[in-house]
């Protein structure tokens, strides 16, 4: 069994009358990438600020590596690396100068700081541009430099707060690659996002956050099965008067749970779409003209929809 790096128990925070975070409890294991998925304003950043020890909680506890975390409790801070949503760098300094500055604030001694700066520059791929001012960088490079500072003091827990907001697709891919790589290297990562495809790609487990409450926590598979979502095959075509017969035919196939008749054709709820696709099409084609086929696998978007009744990006 892997050891727990972060343990959050009954965490709550109010701003005036507004409850920002409500009784959150979850944990992150060593080497695990944990996704916190929720729409804007769901309490992700507030939660991250409390875990990073910037913001005090009203109640509940946060432990990193077994040590309590809070604004006045510096003991565990060396184990936490924060990558804020904004480019939290001095853009009028070079990346190397930024790294040196934040390294000093982390109380890293000279030799270790120097060595680590080279290492993290390598990790984020900015070695060639390390002595350029940050304001001369592209958006994607700024994001990478932003991540580099979070990694500098060798934290055991990296907090990434929406690191791909406002980034072009190519840089986004680069960032996702490096986060994936960090996860594989044994670092524990908390990754907040409102892009479900990022959570699906990167995270071992996902917590779904809405209005400050954690609605569900688990792996993607677990969450999907918990809400009873299945693969769907959407067949568009013309079946005219043979529709009933066609439906009867596919229903006899193994793995088809139900069939809905829609305005454009049929929708099949199945246990495993790719395994059954060929047989299903063979069963349908004698009874009409199939014009298009689409496979829809269940995803976190569907989970979110089913849990909240709303789409993620409202």
């Amino acid at each position: 069994m892997s050891s727990t790096v972060l343990e959050v128990q009954g965490l709550a925070k109010k701003f005036g009358d507004r409850t920002a975070v409500n009784e959150l409890s979850f944990h992150v294991d060593a080497g695990e990438t944990f996704g916190l998925l929720g729409p804007n304003g769901s309490g992700k950043t507030t939660t991250m600020s409390m875990i990073a020890g910037i913001l005090g909680a009203d109640s509940g506890s946060i432990r990193v590596g077994g040590q309590p975390v809070g604004p006045t409790q510096h003991g565990a801070k060396g184990q936490i690396g924060l990558v804020p949503q904004d480019i939290a760098l001095y853009e009028d300094l070079t990346t190397r100068e930024n790294l040196d500055f934040f390294g000093r604030l982390q109380n890293m001694d000279g030799a270790r700081r120097k060595a680590r700066i080279e290492q993290v520059l390598e990790i984020v791929g900015l070695r060639d541009r390390a002595d350029d001012r940050v304001d001369e960088y592209s958006g994607g490079m700024k994001r990478r430099a932003n991540i580099a500072v979070g990694l500098l003091h060798e934290p055991s827990l990296l907090i990434l707060d929406e690191p791909t907001v406002g980034v072009d697709p190519q840089s986004r891919n680069q960032i996702l690659d490096s986060v994936e790589h960090l996860g594989q290297s044994g670092l524990s990562v908390i990754y907040t996002t409102h892009y479900m495809e990022e959570a699906e790609r990167l995270c071992d487990r996902v917590g779904i956050l809405d209005h400050g409450s954690l609605l569900a926590v688990g792996s993607q598979r677990e969450l999907v099965s918990r809400v009873g979502q299945e693969d769907r095959i959407v067949v568009s075509g013309v079946f005219t008067d043979q529709t009933e017969i066609a439906v009867g035919e596919v229903m006899t196939l193994d793995g088809v749970r139900s069939v809905d008749v829609t305005s454009v054709g049929l929708e099949l709820n199945v246990s495993d779409a790719s395994a059954i696709l060929v047989a299903a099409l063979a069963a349908l084609s004698p009874h009409g003209e199939v014009q298009g086929v689409e496979i829809r696998e269940p995803n976190l978007e569907a989970v979110f929809l089913s849990l909240t009744g709303r789409a993620l990006r409202d």
């Binding site: 801070k77 924060l82 804020p84 939290a88 001095y90 604030l105 109380n107």
Partner: peptide, 14 residues
């Protein structure tokens, strides 16, 4: 405003 302050505060300082 640009979050360098939260970043500093995530380290052992006030």
């Amino acid at each position: 405003d640009n979050s360098t302050l939260p970043r500093m505060l995530s380290g052992p300082t006030n």
